[in-house]
Design a protein around this nucleic acid. Structure first.
Length: 598
RNA sequence: GCGCUCGUAGCUCAGCUGGAUAGAGCAUCAGACUUCGAAUCUGAGGGUCGGGAGUUCGAAUCUCUCCGAGCGCGCCA
């Protein structure tokens, strides 16, 4: 047994601390200058496993400031590290890498820590500051289509990841219920209302939403109001019709999101900024004006493509150039109403006022040109105290057997999110959306996801988890005392001696499990949930490989050894660790971890 | 014209915030099932990291400049 078991729940952090301790010892020896900057010292897995378990760049990073050659410094550090109880071997390689091989007992204890922690393994405990993640925010004018899908899944997984990493997270949806588009929605719904009352409405006029999804809205209006709205002027019926239509659209959108396993804590109404308690948009502009960040002025017309109806006029401008933007931005339209940007500033100020200094927005690629001005606005309304990270999710190209699927919202024949989820399942949709960096374009081929499901990474990872459960089911023949209940099984396996886990493949698998906390930290810090998906794929791959190694060539490597319950228990502990991490990781992605694939 | 994002194996993509000989999957070729699930595994071939220059011990990663693709450029959201 090693002297400190709590450290082993995060081996990489613990080894970094040990390297830092070695460096401090060198400072005490006056082999290194006092106050040397050690912040860039890292401990990471080496590219090639033959180099050892872990590598540190300490010697290379510190060499210049220490005034020593990297390899000489490496030797001095190595000398200290060789005295460490965890360290089995230290090698110096290449330009000054220090490669560490740990005693296998460290990895075994790391595995035990992982099993004992269960679903809390790798969970961050440090009390981080609250973070607000805004995603989806689709206009409430119709059902969600596949274009919304990626942002929804990405934002949801990112929020899961941040929460798991220890941050208090609020998941938010901004309802764009104040612009011209919701008035169009109201007029479109009114048409369906007349239809529901038996009037012949003919073809849907140009400029209104033609989709059938408004038929039930018309019926609901007819039931609620009877014919009472027919004689009224538009100005009289529109606000009420709009309110009801938006409510029904949002109910539909929530259903769609639920089908994708996406949830929000807060649905924030844009209209509430203007009609709630006071005009927050006006107040925000007034404050900024008082601070000299808003002024009356003129803008030059855009270069290259000047709009036909360009009219040079004095207008209300936000001084975004003072905060890193390229040009100042208008806050009021020519008719005196606020621009979308103006209410968005007020909205983000509202977030800051609610205590969020860390804001994340998930936007579609077509809003990329909007990032600088919004970040400028967040700085301006928070006196530079709040920061906004905008994550852009790129286009999803929906294909069927290589052929693009046409999507036109105007024609009313767009592919809805619900159709895709019903066709391929939420697990496949979610994993495919996350098995790619958010800012890379994604080809999503419906035919491939179904037909080639055997080659689909989501099934590969899920199969890893299912296979592990299968091993547990079969193991009862050798270890009858193995509990069926997962928690009880984990409790038993966390206490099993692991000394006999010494196969290189087994050690590799333990290392992979031990890397999970480090992966979570990095993925959360970078706001990159796709890293979790790739890690899980690799972990599943290591597991499948070890499983197959126990084939006919090496039956002694099977997890279940008929006449050796002790060894079987040790290996079941390994399976438990892998299974547990797969389950937790898939949970973060919002994907099921099934017990069987049949 | 300006701005943002991207360019890595035939195809689809990773590359852990600057590290070692650039990695997976698909496809191709050659192998592994009477026993823990073959939805799996083992191996082989496949590269001017779009081109060029720079920064330093070290660059796919940072800077500049070209080439190419996508998105955006008051009074849409």
């Amino acid at each position: 047994m090693l002297e400190n078991t709590s450290e082993t729940s995060h081996v990489f952090a613990a080894v970094l601390a040990r390297v830092q301790a070695a460096l401090e010892a060198l400072v005490a020896d006056e082999s290194l200058p006092a106050g040397i900057d050690r912040s860039r010292v890292l401990v990471e897995p080496p590219r090639d496993a033959s180099h050892g378990d872990l590598a540190t760049n300490a010697a290379m990073v510190l060499a210049k400031e220490a005034g020593q050659k990297p390899r000489d410094l490496a030797e001095a550090i190595a000398e200290k590290l060789r005295a460490d109880a965890w360290v089995l071997r230290v090698d110096i390689a290449g330009p000054g890498f220090i490669n560490l091989t740990l005693r296998p007992a460290v990895w075994r204890e790391a595995l035990q820590a992982a099993i004992a922690a269960g679903s809390d393994y790798a969970r961050g405990t440090a009390a981080g500051s609250p973070v607000n993640v805004e995603y989806v925010s689709a206009n409430p004018t119709g059902p969600m289509h596949v274009g919304h899908c990626r942002g929804a899944v990405f934002g949801d997984a990112l929020a899961n990841l941040l929460a798991f990493a220890g941050r208090p997270v609020t998941r938010e949806y901004y309802i764009n219920d104040a612009g011209a588009q919701v008035d169009v929605l109201a007029r479109s719904a009114f048409l369906r209302y007349r239809e529901a009352l038996g009037q012949d409405i003919g073809p849907i006029p140009e400029g209104l939403y033609p989709g059938d999804y408004l038929v039930p809205v018309g019926r609901a209006l007819a039931e609620a109001c009877g014919p009472s709205l027919l004689d009224k002027a538009e100005a009289e019926w529109l606000p009420e019709v709009r309110r009801i239509a938006i409510d029904m659209m949002m109910a539909m959108i929530r259903d769609d999101l639920a089908a994708l396993n996406v949830r929000h804590d807060e649905f924030f109404s844009e209209r509430s900024l203007i009609e709630g308690d006071g005009d927050q948009v006006g107040a925000t502009i007034a404050t900024l004006r008082a601070e000299g960040k808003v002024y009356q002025g003129r803008l030059p017309p855009p270069k290259g493509a000047p709009p036909e109806d360009w009219e040079d006029r004095e207008q209300t401008l936000f001084r975004s150039t003072g905060f890193g933007d390229d040009i100042d931005r208008p806050l009021e339209k020519s008719d005196g109403s606020y621009t979308y940007f103006a209410s968005d500033i007020a909205y983000h100020k509202n977030k800051v006022a609610r205590g969020f200094l860390d804001l994340i927005d998930v936007w579609g690629a077509d809003h990329g040109g909007y990032i600088k001005r919004m970040q400028a606005a967040v700085k301006a309304v928070s006196d530079g105290k709040a920061a906004l990270d905008v994550k852009i999710v790129q286009l999803v190209k929906l294909l069927r057997a290589g052929q693009p699927v046409k999507m036109s919202k105007r024609a009313g024949d767009f592919v809805t999110l619900r159709e895709v989820v019903d066709e391929v399942g939420k697990d496949a949709v979610r994993f495919m959306m996350l098995y790619r960096k958010n800012d890379a374009v994604l080809d999503f081929d419906l035919a491939k996801v179904i037909e080639q499901s055997r080659d689909n990474p989501v099934f590969y990872v899920q199969y890893g988890h299912a296979r592990a459960q299968s091993v547990f089911r079969n193991a009862k023949a050798v270890v009858p005392e193995l509990p069926t209940d997962a928690a009880a099984r984990a409790a038993l396996l966390a206490a099993v001696p692991l000394d006999r886990l010494d196969d290189p493949g087994e050690i590799a698998l333990m290392r992979a499990v031990a890397q999970f906390p480090r992966l979570i930290e990095a993925a959360a810090a970078a706001h990159e949930p796709h890293r979790v998906a790739f890690y899980l794929y690799e972990l599943a791959s290591d597991f499948h490989a070890q499983y197959t190694r126990g084939g006919k060539d090496s039956p002694h490597l099977r997890f279940i050894i008929q006449d050796d319950p002790q060894l079987t228990l040790a290996r079941l502990a390994l399976v438990q660790g892998v299974s547990s991490v797969l389950s937790v990781g898939l949970g973060l992605l919002g994907v099921e971890a099934p017990d069987e694939m049949r």
